[in-house]
Computed example of a mutant assay.
Amino acid sequence: MSELKLQRLCQIMEPEPGNPMEVEGVLNPAAVRGPDGKLYLFPRMVAKGNYSRIGIARVLFNDAGDPTGVERLGIALEPETDYELRSDGSGGCEDPRITFVEPLQHYVMAYTALSPNGPRCALAVSEDLLHWKRIGLATFEPYDGIDFVHVDNKDASIFPVAIPNHAGKMQFALLHRPLFQGTRPEETIFQSKSRVVDIDRESIWISYCPMTLEGLEPYHISLFNSHHRLATPVSPWERLKIGVGTPPIMSRHGWMIIYHGVCEISETSKDVPQLRYSSGIMVLSKDHPQTIYYRSVEPVLEPELQKELYGTVPNVVFPTGIDRRDDLDKPDRFDIYYGMADNRIGVARLDLPEFLPDEGVADPPEAKV
């Protein structure tokens, strides 16, 4: 079994007592270095009725360079637009992932907008991390009869640079996980363990923006017209669902993401099934990111602590933020920020070895476009 595991550092954030905007939890943060070199978290803050905002917090470190806590700075986004609000007064801006897109010299936030039609991928941009301008909902042209626009879609993140598409053309790309009817883990759990995975409707997808790079402005990154399956559930720990976790970040081995996988708990009741959200590592080719070089056979982080086993949604570790520790001259160290049972935020450390374990799996050829 692989020794490639995450080492927990601490719980870094929990709901602030007396703060009505956090009464139902703080979770699933983006993590990104600001223009000042400091690390900022953008947690999902949940008020009564599952009404979510995206906050801003500065990460505090001890003398050894390990994160120890946060300083709250305010709100980055709260529901305002028609695609973030519902007629009954509910709504939400949820689960952000933020990337500094180098050619644009802007930060791009991909987040989940809780629209009247269901969750959708939305985008916003900023120059300083403190002031954000909405681009709108990401739009997707159909692919081979698959309609991405009129289905729920979550877990989006954008690459920090243009990457080659299937034809070798350099384009900006978005990772996302459409939630087609019948593919939620609450639905797939009732299917046979030997079920056949629907590779079109149960995959993480990579979609490309057709705009030319020359003269491209941040608000142009909204239409995606070329789509390719990236990854499909393969291992038992992720057999019910996989989804993007942290934004892709360059490592010594290629583009790396920490993703989530869902399985059922073995002792669960047939009437009230229980799910377990764990985390794995996926490494994509630097030059051909549609190619998976490595993928965890076993989880690198799974619910074990009391605050991961019990909370708003039990048995959940949900990675969304990643920080490469260049500030410590340790480019092989990555700090992973993750939601704990949909109520708190933890941080764990990954030390990437010179060589990846041999047992890493990729998707079978038939699961690729």
Results as ranks from 00 to 15, higher is better:
residue 280 G to R: 07
residue 355 F to P: 00
residue 298 E to M: 09
residue 314 P to L: 12
residue 274 Q to Y: 11
residue 355 F to Q: 05
residue 350 L to C: 09
residue 354 E to D: 07
residue 235 S to D: 11
residue 234 V to W: 15
residue 341 A to R: 02
residue 355 F to D: 01
residue 260 H to K: 07
residue 320 T to W: 04
residue 238 E to V: 12
residue 316 V to F: 06
residue 294 Y to P: 00
residue 307 K to C: 08
residue 308 E to V: 13
residue 258 I to W: 00
residue 270 K to H: 09
residue 312 T to C: 00
residue 307 K to W: 01
residue 334 F to Y: 11
residue 330 K to G: 01
residue 247 P to S: 06
residue 282 M to F: 09
residue 331 P to S: 11
residue 257 I to G: 03
residue 297 V to Q: 14
residue 332 D to P: 08
residue 305 L to E: 11
residue 224 F to N: 06
residue 223 L to D: 12
residue 254 G to D: 01
residue 290 Q to Y: 14
residue 335 D to S: 09
residue 254 G to F: 00
residue 322 I to Y: 00
residue 242 I to F: 05
residue 306 Q to G: 14
residue 254 G to Y: 00
residue 316 V to N: 05
residue 310 Y to C: 14
residue 307 K to V: 07
residue 305 L to H: 05
residue 311 G to E: 06
residue 302 E to W: 06
residue 313 V to W: 03
residue 309 L to Q: 03
residue 328 L to H: 08
residue 300 V to S: 08
residue 305 L to Y: 04
residue 300 V to L: 10
residue 239 R to L: 01
residue 316 V to E: 01
residue 294 Y to H: 04
residue 262 V to P: 08
residue 230 L to S: 03
residue 247 P to M: 01
residue 314 P to D: 14
residue 311 G to L: 03
residue 243 G to H: 04
residue 300 V to E: 06
residue 232 T to R: 11
residue 235 S to E: 15
residue 273 P to W: 04
residue 304 E to V: 14
residue 314 P to T: 09
